Simulated scan of single mutants.
Amino acid sequence: MSTSTDVRQERPGVLHVRINRPEARNAINDVVAGELARTFESAENSREVRVLVLSGAGEGFSAGLDLKAFADHGETGEVPGRGFAGIAKRPPSKPLIAAIEGFALAGGFELALACDMIVASRDARVGLPEVKRGLVADGGSLLRLPERMPLPIVMELALLGHTVPVETLHRWGVVNRVTEPGGAVTEALELASAIAANAPLATAATKQVLAHSSRALHAAGWEEQARITQPVWASEDAREGARAFKEKRDPVFRGS
């Protein structure tokens, strides 16, 4: 069994998927992304799975893209047809709940936003620091957040790159439930169990109708985003940001 993800059916109808790279802050590389995609594909075809819960091992949910793998090998954590972490562009058709402890930063926050609901501990650090590394948050957050929060608030969050209190995201409706530290996974599993107890056909149809109302799942939005962001990912600033992270120093950006 791989050590990058851990999959357990802990409760009837509920599949708990855990990113298991605590030594790398559960950062997403190509291996993890592929494993998550295969897990979600398998869950789609399983009658035993009605709801999924996604969490991270150790002290946090996910720090996002593995910048060391990006700096050394150009890994982007993308899965063809599914996007970042095997979920950003095409989440599972079955309800998916993110359980955030510790931190969900950059692509880790985008991974949570690709889920249908978020349960987070009140002390978790959440944010989109990509601009501080010469990168763009193009894993779905810039498409999804304006559907849930006022645009000026999203602008501040994304352009400053600072962390945002979980309580603030809860007030705006981005986070469904806030727990005491250490309680996010248990609360998410309880929520998932309550959903799994409902009629599976009705549950699936309800999610399908709601999901189709989202601009974030429309191909045109992703295509336009790629046109704008791909030159940034290919820039020297992007490489400098990743190198600076790896070398634990401040980046020197030149706008090229």
Rank of each mutant, 00 (worst) to 15 (best):
V7S: 10
P12D: 11
H16M: 05
I19G: 02
N20P: 03
P22R: 12
N26G: 03
N26E: 00
I28V: 15
D30Q: 08
G34R: 10
E35Y: 09
R38N: 12
T39S: 06
F40G: 01
E41G: 06
E48V: 04
V51A: 10
L52A: 09
L54V: 15
S55Q: 11
G58N: 01
G60E: 15
G60P: 02
S62T: 08
A63I: 13
L65H: 07
L65E: 10
D66E: 07
D66G: 07
L67I: 06
K68W: 11
K68G: 12
A69D: 05
A71V: 02
D72F: 13
G74W: 07
G74R: 04
E75Y: 09
G83M: 06
A85R: 01
G86H: 11
S93T: 08
I97T: 07
A99E: 11
L105M: 14
G107Q: 11
E110N: 06
I118Y: 04
I118P: 03
R122S: 12
R125W: 14
K132E: 05
R133F: 14
R133I: 03
A137K: 00
G140S: 07
G140N: 04
S141W: 11
R144S: 09
E147T: 02
P150F: 08
P150E: 09
P150V: 07
P150M: 07
L151I: 12
E156H: 07
L159G: 09
T163S: 10
T163D: 14
P165N: 10
V166R: 09
V166D: 02
R171N: 13
W172A: 15
G173Q: 13
V178N: 08
P181A: 00
G182C: 01
G183Q: 00
A184G: 00
A184V: 00
T186R: 14
E187P: 02
A188Q: 06
L189V: 04
L189R: 07
A194K: 13
A196D: 01
N198V: 04
L201F: 13
A204Y: 13
T206Y: 15
K207S: 06
Q208I: 00
R215A: 14
L217I: 11
L217P: 04
H218C: 11
E223S: 14
T229V: 13
Q230E: 15
W233P: 04
A234L: 14
S235V: 03
F245H: 11
E247F: 12
R249V: 07
R249M: 06
R249S: 02
G255T: 09
